[in-house]
Design a protein around this nucleic acid. Structure first.
Lengths: 147, 147
DNA sequence: CCTTGACCTTCCACTAACTGGAAGCGTCAT
DNA sequence: ATGACGCTTCCAGTTAGTGGAAGGTCAAGG
C-alpha cells in the first residue's frame, strides 16, 4: 500500500525516476515545458504526472526532436481532442530532417574517408589531405542548398 | 602579366572568391584563424594567401571539421616540417566522429520511422507515437554512453 | 544544541559557430 | 551634394543545456 497522501518527489528523485539530470529539469521548467508545484520550503515537488512528462521529454529528445517539437508534442499529448495526423506530421518532418542529415554526413564521410586513405600518415610532410583542402572544390557556401 | 603592385581584395571580394560570407570572414579573424592587413582607410585587405586560407577553411568546415580542428589543420598546413601522420590522425579521428554520429542518427531514424509507420495519421486522437513517447524506454541519459 | 554532509534554491557565465542588426564612416557615380 | 553601397565595430540572439558560486534546508550523529 502506498501512502494515501502523496507528497511528491523532490528534484533528485525526479531526476532518477525520469532519467534526466536535475539541471535539465530546472531548465525545462524555466522554458515552460513543465510546471511542478513547490513545497513550503521552496523545493520543487514532482508527482506522477510530472515524472511522466519528464520521461516523455527524455525519450523525445533522445529521438532527436527539438525542444520546440517537444513543446508541440506535449501540447498534443495534453489535448484529448488532437488529431493523430498532427502528431504524425511532426514525426514525419523530423524523419525527413534526420534523413537529410544522414545524407549530408554520408557525403562528408565518403570524402573524408577518401582523404584518410590517400595519406601515407608517416613522418614525411607530403600530405594529400592538406593538398585537397587547399585546392579542392568550395563546398559549403558555394554548393550547399539554402534554407 | 598581373599588376606588379597587388593591392588586395576587400572583404566583399574575398567573400566571393572564397565562398564564405563576409560576416564569417570577420569572425574567423576575431578568433585568430586569419590576420589580413588593413588599408589606410581601415578596410581589410586580402591577398592570394588569405583567400587561399579562407577557401581552405570553407572546405574543411564543409567536411565537418570543427573550428579547432581547422586551426590545427592550418597550423600543419603552415608548417613545412609537419608529419603527414599528424594530419592523417586528425582526419581519422574526425572520420570516427562522423561514423559515430551516423550510427546514432540511423538508430533514431529506425525508431522514428517505426513510429511514423504505426500512426494512422487521421483525424482521430489515438496515436501510437504519443503512446510510445509516454511509455517507451528512457533512452538518453539512461543508456547513452558517457564520455 | 551544533555540526556535518547531502540536498535544495537562484543566478550568472560558458559552450559552437556563426548570424542579424544598429550606428557610423568611406567611396563612388550622378 | 546626395544617395546607394560597402566597410567598420559592437551587441544580441541562436540550441540545449552544463558548471559553478553563494546560500537555505534537512536528517543524523555527537
Amino acid at each position: 500500500m502506498t501512502n494515501a497522501m502523496e507528497t511528491g518527489m523532490n528534484i533528485g528523485q525526479a531526476a532518477k525516476a525520469s532519467g534526466l539530470p536535475a539541471k535539465t529539469i530546472r531548465y525545462y521548467e524555466d522554458i515552460g515545458l513543465i510546471a511542478p508545484k513547490r513545497d513550503s520550503n521552496g523545493y520543487r515537488s514532482f508527482r506522477e504526472g510530472e515524472i511522466h512528462r519528464l520521461a516523455f521529454l527524455n525519450r523525445a529528445r533522445g529521438l532527436g526532436f527539438s525542444i520546440e517539437d517537444c513543446r508541440a508534442l506535449l501540447g498534443l499529448y495534453d489535448d484529448a481532442s488532437r488529431a493523430s495526423e498532427d502528431v504524425r506530421r511532426l514525426a514525419a518532418e523530423h524523419l525527413d530532417r534526420i534523413d537529410a542529415r544522414i545524407a549530408e554526413l554520408q557525403e562528408m564521410r565518403a570524402t573524408v574517408a577518401g582523404l584518410v586513405d590517400s595519406c601515407a600518415g608517416d613522418g614525411r610532410p607530403d600530405c594529400p589531405i592538406l593538398d585537397d583542402l587547399a585546392t579542392g572544390p568550395l563546398s559549403r557556401h558555394a554548393t550547399r542548398s539554402r534554407r
